[in-house]
Each structure stands twice: as C-alpha cells, then as structure tokens.
C-alpha cells in the first residue's frame, strides 16, 4: 500500500518476518499471535478465516509449525514470496543460534559450563512438555488425542527403535475408528 514497486511484497515480508525471527523466544508458537496481527489487521494480506485455514495447513504439512510464515509468503507473492518469507523467518534466528552454539562449544569442559548446562536443560525439558499442551490447546484436541500422544510417547520409551511411521499410522487408524463409530451411532 505504501510502496508500489514490484519488490514491495518481498520487502514487506522481510520487514515483518526478520524482526519476528529474532524475538521468537521459546519457539515459533510464541510469534503466531503477532504474525496473525501483522498479516490480518496491519497488512491486510488475508482475512482472519484464511489465516486460520493456513494455520491448520501448516500444522499438518511436513515441517515445523512455523511453515505458517512460508504459506503467508505464498499467499502474498506466490512461490517467490514463499521462499522469501521462509528465509526471512528462519535465517536470522539460525545465524544467531549458530553463533551461540559456537560460543557454547568453546567453553565445553569448564566447570561453569557444566553448571549452566545442568541449570538450563531442565528449563528446556519443561518447555518441551509445555509445548505439547500448547499444541493441543490450539488445536482444541479432545481426550482421544491426548491419550494417543501419551501412548506414542510411552511406546517409544519402551521400544526406542519402534518406527514413528507405524505410530503415526496408528493415530490415523484410531481417529478414523472414532469417526466410524460416531457415524454408526455408537458415540455421540
């Protein structure tokens, strides 16, 4: 709207996603709300309904949930937009992460390094569990989804070499069974 050159959609995507990339502390979901605000209310790239649809697609399509950004880029400027948005969202944070990993690695073996690691690892693990809850909350998942996820986690703990495909397949079968039972009138 403000800029009208042919570069403007790419530039707009970069302006939106680069800063968000660098503030997404705790992961992609922490910036979903600001992304929605930018895409729907500020830039008018899409309607709220379209955003929810894209969100659903990003969740099931391969890749991290942050592929949301890729799909917004695609809506805004086709394949070029998809690629620009993906790079804008993932490159800045990745460079930062690489820099931190390098520094982190340099001091491996020091006593304080071990203490930092021992102190931070539990925060990471706690966030991992919290992330699982957050995903279910966003998807408004029922007890069946919860039960299934816990079943998969326990199966993998018991048999670490079990193939994830088999477990994902069980998920699809179980949910179809529920659908069929509901359809047949056994469940309401």
């Amino acid at each position: 709207m403000r800029e009208d050159s042919s570069l403007s959609p790419y530039l707009a995507l970069i302006t939106v996603f680069v800063p968000l990339s660098l503030v997404a502390i705790g992961g992609g979901p922490s910036i979903f709300a600001p992304i929605q605000k930018e895409a729907v209310d500020v830039r008018h790239w899409m309607s709220a309904r379209e955003f929810i649809e894209i969100f659903a697609v990003a969740r099931v399509a391969p890749g991290p949930g942050s592929m949301l950004g890729t799909l917004i880029g695609w809506k805004v400027a086709g394949w070029g937009g998809a690629i620009v948005a993906t790079l804008a969202l993932f490159i800045p944070s990745s460079i930062l992460c690489l820099a931190v990993a390098k520094v982190w690695n340099r001091y491996r073996g020091r006593e304080w390094h071990a203490a930092l690691e021992m102190g931070l690892a539990p925060i990471g693990t706690g966030l991992m569990f919290a992330g699982a809850i957050a995903i279910f909350r966003m998807a408004e998942a029922g007890p069946l989804a919860w039960g299934l996820a816990i079943f998969v986690a326990l199966m993998l703990t018991w048999r670490p070499r079990a193939h994830p495909f088999a477990l994902l397949g069980i998920g699809a079968v179980v949910f179809n069974l529920q659908l069929w039972l509901a359809h047949a009138g056994f469940l309401r």
């Binding site: 992961g27 993932f90 944070s93 990471g124 966030l127």
Partner: peptide, 10 residues
Amino acid sequence: ALAQIVPGAN
C-alpha cells in the same frame, strides 16, 4: 535446551 532458549523456531 539451547534451541528453546535462543530465539527462533525450536
């Protein structure tokens, strides 16, 4: 732990 504390997709 590092991936979650550094900004960006985990």
